[in-house]
């Protein structure tokens, strides 16, 4: 479907202090399913993700989500299509209760109360957090916070899910549950992460970033098994691919 297309063309961006975070990034994702964005610290992954919903934008528009060219004017549309799960759930959860936090997006979209309520219920159900709905978010465990943060975004029914390091700070069980959730979502997913084992399980495609550029892209196993490529960009070949034979 066309509104699942994400296209970035020759995107460059520098922060006000002069840091060139993106230097001519181009890629196109049209298949549904999941794409991983991997690269060392400071490669520019988070900065790139912030362009996908128009939070950061250049004067030339280099980002297209479905049929929308993302500019300041169309940012609201892009935000409805692109659900963004941020790296630190504490930044994302700011309402007094879990339920109110999940309701925040649907309320801003102007939905009537009964629809908001059903969105909240189904989003929490989806991540198995219904029992926490009246709890204050800051009292939850890291895994619960992450799940609720994902629910806040699911409640907006986005076409595309964008996640920044979703498995950071999770213990093995919470991480396992996250992976199962990710596998169950039908959305197009773009996942920035260092967690290469998660990439192998969840993503079919990989984009490798280094110093503000996409330096490689292709099928997951092929890219991640390329020892030289991985080492050259501050990454390493994941253990579960150690004995796999690509090509």
């Amino acid at each position: 479907m066309s509104h699942h297309v994400v296209e970035v063309r020759d995107l460059s961006f520098a922060y006000p202090d002069g840091t060139e975070a993106l230097r001519g990034v181009s890629f196109r994702i049209e298949h549904g399913g999941a794409v991983a964005l991997i690269g060392g610290n400071g490669a520019g992954k988070s900065t790139l993700l912030l362009h996908l919903n128009g939070y950061l934008s250049t004067t030339r528009s280099d980002v297209r989500i479905g049929d929308t060219i993302v500019t300041r004017e169309t940012a609201a549309l892009a935000r409805r299509a692109v659900g963004m799960v941020f790296q630190d759930p504490d930044d994302q959860l700011f309402m007094p209760t879990v339920a109110e936090d999940v309701a925040f997006g649907p309320l801003n979209a102007g939905l009537p109360p009964d629809q908001v309520e059903s969105r909240v219920a189904s989003a929490l159900e989806r991540v198995g957090m219904t029992h926490l709905r009246e709890r204050p978010p800051y009292r939850l465990s890291a895994g619960e916070k992450r799940a609720v943060a994902i629910a806040t975004v699911l409640a907006m029914s986005p076409d595309i899910l964008v996640m920044d390091e979703p498995s950071s700070n999770l213990d093995p069980r919470a991480r396992r549950r996250l992976i199962e959730h990710l596998l169950s979502f039908e959305h197009t997913k773009i996942i920035a992460t260092h967690d290469l084992e998660l990439v192998v399980e969840v993503c079919r495609h990989v984009l490798v970033m280094d110093a503000g550029r996409i330096v490689a892209q292709g099928p997951t196993v092929e890219i991640l098994s390329d020892e030289n490529l991985m080492l050259a960009h501050g990454l390493e070949r994941p253990h579960i691919l150690r004995h796999a034979h690509p090509h």
């Binding site: 912030l50 963004m84 941020f86 930044d91 700011f94 109110e100 925040f104 801003n108 975004v153």
Partner: peptide, 18 residues
């Protein structure tokens, strides 16, 4: 970052309660 997360979920300055 908190503000960024609010904007990402459609916050436009109007405070809405359920």
């Amino acid at each position: 970052r908190v503000y960024r997360a609010m904007v990402a979920r459609g916050f436009d300055g109007e405070v809405r309660v359920l």
